[in-house]
Write a protein that binds this DNA or RNA. Structure first.
Lengths: 154, 154
DNA sequence: GAAATTAGTCACGATGCCTGACTGTCAAGT
DNA sequence: ACTTGACAGTCAGGCATCGTGACTAATTTC
């Protein structure tokens, strides 16, 4: 039988890549002054604007439940990464706004990921990496659309 | 500020792709007679041989802790997907062997993933998809090697 | 033959996610 | 102007999954 070791499927490969990227990102962030940040915090930190975003918008962008976004925001508030501010446009709503510490983490995370991409670019070659990245975005969009495609064919 | 929506990083993209692949795989498996299988079961089912594999080998292949492999195997035994058999070469060891039901699930999971890859191949074109897949494997291997690279430079 | 290592399980605790219910607020319809 | 439906976020309870050290039996190494 041909095992997954010889020809790993897309699911295994993407899972392995995601974990390897998270390992480097969070270990490097830890060395750079952000030892408290966890992958789950990315549901908020990776999707924030400097102007702040509503929790329900974060939930929509990340596919994460609004209750979970609420608890992640609670944690990030207590760690000093974000603060909640009233939204003047809607007294029900709060805006999740990054603090200085939060902006520093966001900038450092972006820089680390840029370094990873540059290194991979040198490994694969600039054109090959650009083609890979473009295909990954296209493949991801297509695969995410599967749910819509499938429901409309029911 | 350029938000992640406009230029999502590799970590966000691979996380989204992995979740989208898992959604389709497990929903389709559910329709095809395997409603009890969960993503965590993939740590065992995706890495099995027909001859059986030791739990510690599964732990090594998947990066999952041996205790967790033990509990996943417990669950798969009770669901009828695998059985534990003594390993004649070592009386401490057990071999995790797929049952008929397990082999059926493995075959169906492989077929579903093959269908997904064929569809993506048609979307991107055969050569573009092949190049993407090859680059994904190379990028994953390289990124997984980061831990070794980093430890040897300490 | 003794010491070190391995295979797998035990037990406990930590972490993260899911769901329905609820209250205050807003927007749309009449 | 009032009613109704929808929305924003939190509450509370429960479920799912993972991490770690300790332990015993068995194997390997010296």
């Amino acid at each position: 039988m041909d095992t997954a070791q010889h020809h790993p499927d897309l699911g295994v490969l993407t899972g392995q890549l995601m974990r390897a990227l998270q390992n480097e990102l969070f270990e490097t962030l830890s060395e750079q002054g952000h030892p408290d940040v966890r992958p789950r915090h990315g549901s908020v930190l990776a999707f924030l604007d400097a102007d702040g975003v509503r929790a329900t918008d974060l939930a929509a962008r990340t596919g994460q439940h609004k209750q979970i976004i609420g608890t992640i925001v609670d944690e990030l508030v207590s760690l000093g990464y974000v603060r909640r501010e009233p939204d003047p446009a809607d007294r029900r709503a709060k805006r999740i706004v990054p603090t200085e510490h939060g902006l520093d983490e966001i900038a450092k995370a972006r820089a680390i990921l840029a370094t990873i991409e540059e290194r991979l670019q040198r490994t694969l070659g600039e054109q090959r990496f650009a083609a890979f990245r473009e295909a990954l975005q296209e493949v991801t969009g297509h695969q995410q659309a599967w749910r819509e495609t499938r429901q409309s064919s029911v």
